[in-house]
Write a protein that binds this DNA or RNA. Sequence first.
DNA 1: CATGAATGAGCCTTCATTCAT
DNA 2: TATGAATGAAGGCTCATTCAT
Lengths: 200, 200, 200, 200
Amino acid sequence: MPRFSETKLETIREERKIQIMKAAIKVFAENGVKLTKISMIAKEAGISHGLVYHYFQSKEDVLYESLEWAVALGETQDFLEKLKDDNSLSPVEKIHTFTKFALTSGSNQVFRVIQHLENSKGVPSHIHELYTNVGEVYIEFFIPIFKEGQQVGEIIEGNTEELVELFLSVISGIMADDPNWWNDNIEQKVTLLSRMITLR
Amino acid sequence: MPRFSETKLETIREERKIQIMKAAIKVFAENGVKLTKISMIAKEAGISHGLVYHYFQSKEDVLYESLEWAVALGETQDFLEKLKDDNSLSPVEKIHTFTKFALTSGSNQVFRVIQHLENSKGVPSHIHELYTNVGEVYIEFFIPIFKEGQQVGEIIEGNTEELVELFLSVISGIMADDPNWWNDNIEQKVTLLSRMITLR
Amino acid sequence: MPRFSETKLETIREERKIQIMKAAIKVFAENGVKLTKISMIAKEAGISHGLVYHYFQSKEDVLYESLEWAVALGETQDFLEKLKDDNSLSPVEKIHTFTKFALTSGSNQVFRVIQHLENSKGVPSHIHELYTNVGEVYIEFFIPIFKEGQQVGEIIEGNTEELVELFLSVISGIMADDPNWWNDNIEQKVTLLSRMITLR
Amino acid sequence: MPRFSETKLETIREERKIQIMKAAIKVFAENGVKLTKISMIAKEAGISHGLVYHYFQSKEDVLYESLEWAVALGETQDFLEKLKDDNSLSPVEKIHTFTKFALTSGSNQVFRVIQHLENSKGVPSHIHELYTNVGEVYIEFFIPIFKEGQQVGEIIEGNTEELVELFLSVISGIMADDPNWWNDNIEQKVTLLSRMITLR
DNA sequence: CATGAATGAGCCTTCATTCAT
DNA sequence: TATGAATGAAGGCTCATTCAT
């Protein structure tokens, strides 16, 4: 006889899962998936390693669900939404703001996990599908902004899609590095990165 | 009585070692050190896993000697030397040439290995020493070139050392990514990267 | 929420360790350290080889802790203590009693392990320290007994220390042999050994 | 077309085998059979490890033939023969002389190999047969000597066979120990051992 | 639900043995 | 005959996963 209502129980269970998934994303981001041991996730979450298997079928499942959850959670999505609607910023300012966010926000853990996966072999296809088009989302998001920037003369001419892809690729490459290095002089550094695509 | 002359045997032995080290650097670059299994190196080199241990003491030793060999081999060193003495190129052209080389040359496998190591914990100190100042070499190499570029008005003002560090950091971040992505449109992409630090 | 109280778990854990250490000492004694495989210890203890590593860091650690435990356990120590205080026995009777004990007591497994180690190369120093002065203890213990025996004319004249050392050396050599051979006619055999040092 | 006569070749081959067998017995004695590596024998013999397999089928065969050769060679046999015929020595003096020889002669390497084998499991039966009755030979040899000693009142009464067995067992146990320990004060030590069975 | 004891597949490493030269 | 390069079976150790409590 359950003490709590099904819903309540479900909630508690869900909270535990989130606790584990948070820990998992963090540890996966820092160490890569293969090198992350279940015990590391458990320790980060403050639970025993056995408990992980009450909430997830396997390590692969932890990865799948954590990634799914983190992507859907979409801190970055929210950020992009707000950015899109913020008419007080010029296209280049939007790009600048995003870049700063990407390099400093803790939410970039998800990206680092994805990067590890992209550099790995044998990633199960159902996991691969989770992030295979994440990049597309960003590209789609930035194309109109870049286009506008080109129209108002803030951004250099050329194939917009290629420009976006390249810019995001650079950001992405940087994020894989030591994430703390970018905390100093972030403004200046981001400005430099912006120079790649800005006119003046 | 051996059929081979000492010299011949020595040659075979040396060639085998090189064959293994080449394979090792490649596999280490692709998978990272921890995830590289001796059997993967052996397979890549086309030999049995046991043979690796005729030429090296341990996996750690394979890493150490391979790295030492690849660094000393110095394709990049040679490239830098020639670049330095090439008076037909302006500072920005030199940087452009180097960037292209860094992103396309097969020799960047070594850098990818080093990047994996820098993101790893528990790297033995004697291995760490092998690459701890490799970065410095590049910085020292580029500072005078950047300085000259600043004097002739090709490169933006600002703290030269910081500029160099940032630029190399971006290149380095990119190299960790899929190394093939950069093969298309390399000229255009490198030009874009150069824009970060060039005046116009 | 764990079903076991902390104490209960701790007890189980301790019992398992002891179970493994008992098995280890037995197998080490029979086969020597180098030739003892973890799987042999595991089989003797009735567990899987993996479990050994839940309780010990390595094979070396199994050896170290088992030896430390067995030495500290000190069945022999206890025996010596009681022997020392037993005033009903003459010096020669004490020696006789000890000899019988040494050759028949199951506790001589520890000695056999130590003997294997003494005949081995490359024993880690922290392990070596565990038994390096065990011999001294016996010598120190028997010197006064032998001295008394000499005074009362039970034991032959001569350098007491050398006499003790020689006698113990013989006992020790015998213990390395098939320990069951000595079970038959033990009284007679021990009497014969005693003759080495007794007067009549 | 052979350069040498068959006989000559055979001789050379035989000498090589002996060179290897000498090395094998030495290394087997020091390290035990299982812990002796083919490379250790080769090094001791001053040849390459591959060459061992030109003269012997396997490590087991090296052991078998070496043991067979060493036992048949019979330095000890010769010694015993001479001892038997030496009428200038009393029974106890003969035993004393033998004991000294056993503990100091380099020929005791064979015994140490045999002792290692007796403490081992899984010794092939054809090898076991080589030494299974070596002990018997000694017992048979000493029984008449002990008997004579008892008759002339040099040696204590009792079951002669048991007495011999025990005495040899003690000698054998001692030989397994550090063989150098017995080099100092050998006379005194042997005298002490003799006391086990002598009347006075 | 929660813990950690228990298992076994898999990787690093050693070494007996084979074989090209 | 002689060498040492080459192979692969087996043992030490790790860690994902299961399960008794």
